[in-house]
Computed example of a mutant assay.
Amino acid sequence: MGAVGTNTDGTAGERRQLINVAYRLLGSLAESEDAVQEAYARWYALPRTRRDEIASPGAWLTTVTGRICLDVLGSARARREHYVGAWLPDPLPDHAEWDHGRGTDLADQMVLDESVTMAFLVVLESMTPAERVAFVLHDVFRYSFAEIADILDRTPAACKQLAASARRRVRVARAPVTAAGQADVVRHVKEAWETKDIAALVDLLDPAAVMTADGGGMVGTVLRPIEGGARIAQYMVAIAAKAPGLELLERSVNGVPGLVAQRAGAVMTVASFDVADGRVTRIWAVRNPEKLRPWVRAGQAVYRKRILSDE
């Protein structure tokens, strides 16, 4: 499993790997951090003699983190039944786009690849907890089914079957459009949205497109997905009309081109897109303030720099 750190008990270098595993399993930065912290708490609760006996602290921490995430996934289904509106995974910023540097936020530790795109994470949400753990650990992180068996308390053969079942769900989704191709479509959506051009938006949206918004009951938004390109276009233009001063920025969202809506440096919405044949097929708009904290900090930093440069 993960490489052992260089500190005395071999665990310091594992945190980033564990955070990346946990986020792909849970889709939530806060829950991922809690899971990893709990794994470390259990590690340091072991007697020193027991820790010294463990040949690979990284493997031990991954196993424990995986089991904690499995429990969280099981309880999350019940919690989300009481969630106000649709639940979406936390969107991840690329801080290099905001301040050309690396910060200390949890989101900074994420490896932004195809396994964290919003489209991929939404597919993961359709899996059972056991399928998700088996698939993510094997297909994304290349852990063996023998190692995964220790986490799921099943045989390696059973874990292999779980991963195969999950893989079939993933195959239903298309291969993603290239970043350049998606960026062009997203840029045109931004321009049409800014000019409140319903006809242009309708042309850019697939007739069967679906828009899902996550406000968590904390801000106003639609509680159910909006279906149909024409209806989505009308809704987007209505939002723009009600929000004067809203600025749209082209930003990487979970590693692919997306849009960020902000006002006076305050990030209001982060939108992810799925594109096929030059048209948007899915829009995921996250408005829940608790899920936008990494974006708010990044946006405020850029806004302050802009104000200072104008003075």
Rank of each mutant, 00 (worst) to 15 (best):
H82A: 15
V122C: 15
L46C: 00
A86R: 15
V84M: 12
L92K: 00
L46E: 01
V136F: 05
L106V: 09
S56V: 09
R77P: 00
G258R: 04
R282A: 13
E33S: 08
E290R: 14
G5E: 03
Q161D: 13
V267A: 12
P176I: 06
A271G: 04
R167A: 12
R187A: 09
L248E: 11
V84H: 12
A39E: 07
V186Y: 13
L249M: 12
Y44M: 09
E97C: 09
R142E: 14
R297Y: 10
V64Q: 06
F120K: 12
A134V: 00
T212D: 09
T195C: 02
R306W: 14
R80I: 00
K242M: 11
Y83S: 01
M1T: 11
L18C: 07
E38K: 08
V116R: 05
A134K: 00
P257G: 11
R169K: 13
G255L: 01
R279E: 15
T128S: 15
L106I: 12
D90V: 06
D105W: 02
D9N: 11
P207N: 06
N20T: 15
M1C: 07
L106D: 04
W284Q: 12
R50H: 06
P225W: 15
D71L: 02
E38Q: 01
H138Q: 07
V111I: 11
V122K: 14
A76C: 05
M268Q: 08
V116H: 03
L162Q: 14
V72R: 07
V237E: 10
V136E: 01
T128L: 03
Y40N: 03
R187G: 09
W60T: 05
L162M: 14
L29R: 04
L121I: 11
